[in-house]
Design a protein around this nucleic acid. Sequence first.
DNA 1: TGTACATCAGTGAACGCGCGTTCACTGATGTAC
DNA 2: TGTACATCAGTGAACGCGCGTTCACTGATGTAC
Lengths: 203, 203
Amino acid sequence: MIDIIQFVKSGDGGMRASRDEMAAHHGRIVKGASRLLRERGVAGTSVADAMAEAGLTHGGFYRHFEAKDALVAEALGDAFGEMRARLGARLASEDPRVVRAAFRESYLSDRHVADPGHGCPMPTLAADVARESAALKEAFGAGLRGAAAALACGFEGEAPAREAAAYRELALLVGAVLLARASDAETGRTLLKAARQATAADD
Amino acid sequence: MIDIIQFVKSGDGGMRASRDEMAAHHGRIVKGASRLLRERGVAGTSVADAMAEAGLTHGGFYRHFEAKDALVAEALGDAFGEMRARLGARLASEDPRVVRAAFRESYLSDRHVADPGHGCPMPTLAADVARESAALKEAFGAGLRGAAAALACGFEGEAPAREAAAYRELALLVGAVLLARASDAETGRTLLKAARQATAADD
DNA sequence: TGTACATCAGTGAACGCGCGTTCACTGATGTAC
DNA sequence: TGTACATCAGTGAACGCGCGTTCACTGATGTAC
């Protein structure tokens, strides 16, 4: 009487996905996690959340990633890649100086501030990454260097000066969006307005 | 035999603290939490950690705070207060322009980047605050406004222009320290070096 | 091309763990007389 | 000032919960012939 254990399995679970399906799932997991991580942070995004976002259950997670850290690293890389692709596409087709101005404008836009999930991974994830592994910092640094290199094209002068100006510009933009999101609405507006005023030396 | 439950209490526990002691404990909890939160973030700092830091046990926490959120709010306010006090003390005794330069230098110093626990709460806690309650954003915004107001004294020109310059300066500094901490050492150094180069228009 | 079989992507229950919070209890503190 | 008693700051066990991770299992996929 004591030892009766019921093992009832529902009939619909556990079907194997094809290689193509698996690759598609992997991509969906990374894309979804990339958004969730930017919205909720690393601690606020569970493995189960990320899998559910891709329409899967948490148990299969470890067929795709060695651990949660690995997903964070991939998702971070994906978010940086997305940002660079957008910036690169614009740089290829337009005047770099115009692109730089447009980048600043869109970066500091109310839309970007209000929607971290589809925005730059730096304001949302940098603090988390700073407390994580050296490998993740390497990935973050690579993304940052890439963004700075692309943005440097929009500045005048010698290469080193342009690079330095790009890093300063990124620090200003990241800081402004981060602080605006962390502040009450009115303080955020004041700060964004100030950040949008390009100083003369920035051009 | 089944119902024997041992209730052995060690003799040293549960002594009531005086009002002065309680106030001292409260201060120690807030100070300690302020450091831990800056080092490990909100999710990475447990109530038990914060109490242990003050030499207490977790059970007494709720005699001091309604919930964990309340401690975060107090600790954030304390960290901002500390920063403002340091900035204010310098502003009272020296030329504001010199103070501004010194502030930038110390903010972007390797020491500050390497020691988040004793540094500015903005790079470490802004992303967490952005995901928390409106009340916490209000507190963060107040701290930011205070820092900007103090820093504005270091700029030239009309009051609104000085205020805007102070906000831009803070965004740059916060962004630079945040990004440097999240990047590998070499990328971080490159970025800090760029940030330390004050552009002509900043003066 | 068809068949038999090994592989393995995905499922959902289960694991140990640490978390925020609650609670009965202790005994020094604070107060009323 | 001294005494009797109520208060309550701090303790440590216990609570339910969600987390990252593991695992036995399923059955379509992929492969060897």
